[in-house]
Write a protein that binds this DNA or RNA. Structure first.
Length: 283
DNA sequence: ATTCAAGGCGCG
DNA sequence: AAAGCGCGCCTTGAAT
């Protein structure tokens, strides 16, 4: 798939494919390159910067949970992000009733599964399977969570209700996801539509935010007009750049500022920037 | 030779 | 009965 003119592999991004407003990537898909284990990371090491350049990877930290905090206005969640806490640790501390510095690895793992599950509209049954625990225990975790973060429970209920009455849900920038099954008499279809209704505002707003950032970055690079900094990939919550060696430091800070300032939420947006000879090292 | 669906698996 | 959102690519087996 190397282009003979450039000597490089070029993906195609599609702006009008996904239901939530994300981009998709094809021929090849560069949004599912392995990374979660050592063998995968060796593949990522094949994505290298040209001579004298570096790969700069900038990704949003916990962006969907931050959006959940903003949309739900849950006090505890807003506070945790305002104070820059490790969100999974903070959740574990609340749910399991232990001090922040007394959270065990197991407890943090469980809290992380709860946090991710919430974004996807997961049920207690799903959580029990994810964590390999009993149904009763999983239900207690969920109940405890919603007791500690009542704003999130309210938000979930509101979202279901709003989706049912209007037939769609919206992102912060107004992208609508229509949900024809939301009032289906078939409970399986209806539940699936409810999960999509809960997920779409968070996944979709994250897409709104990074698209705004990409436009801001592009404006900046157009003005520079020297080609020393190039935006070369997008992976949903991450932008990847190829940057001339002597520009890496200033570019990193400008990229961070543009991404973090892309949209003003009631929680700070946080961007982690890494630099390396290859895509793996840049993480 | 091409198309389609389903199952499996990679990523966020 | 199903049970966690959003994608794309590969293989398999069947149909065209």
């Amino acid at each position: 798939m190397i282009n003979p003119l450039t000597g490089r592999v070029h993906t195609s991004y599609h702006q009008a494919v996904t239901a939530t407003g994300r981009l998709s990537s094809t021929d090849p898909n560069l949004q599912n390159i392995p990374v979660r284990n050592d063998e995968g990371r060796r593949i990522r090491q094949a994505f290298i910067a040209g001579k004298g350049n570096r790969i700069v990877a900038a990704d949003y930290s916990q962006i969907e949970l931050r959006i959940m905090a903003h949309l739900s206005q849950d006090k505890g969640l807003l506070d945790a992000f305002a104070h820059g806490e490790d969100i999974h640790r903070a959740t574990a501390s609340e749910v399991f009733g232990v001090a922040l510095d007394k959270v065990s690895g197991e407890q943090r793992r469980s809290a992380k599964a709860i946090n991710f599950g919430l974004i996807y509209g997961m049920s207690a049954f799903g959580l029990s399977r994810q964590l390999n625990i009993g149904a009763g225990e999983a239900k207690r975790y969920m109940d405890l969570y919603f007791e500690r973060y009542p704003g999130v429970l309210r938000y979930m209920e509101n979202t279901r209700q709003l989706a049912a009455s209007k037939g769609y849900v919206e992102t912060l920038d107004g992208r609508r996801l229509w949900l024809p099954d939301i009032n289906s008499s078939n409970a399986i279809r209806r539940k699936a539509a409810e999960r999509a209704a809960i997920n779409a505002p968070m996944q979709g707003t994250a897409a709104d935010i990074i698209k705004r950032a990409m436009i801001a970055v592009d404006d900046w690079l157009q003005q520079r007009n020297d080609g020393a900094i190039r935006m070369i990939m997008q992976v949903h919550d991450e932008l990847v750049f190829e940057v001339q060696g002597d520009e890496v430091e200033s570019a990193s800070e400008q990229i961070r500022a543009l991404m973090e300032g892309s949209m003003k939420l009631d929680v700070p947006l946080q961007v982690e920037v890494g630099v390396g000879e290859n895509w793996d090292e840049a993480h």
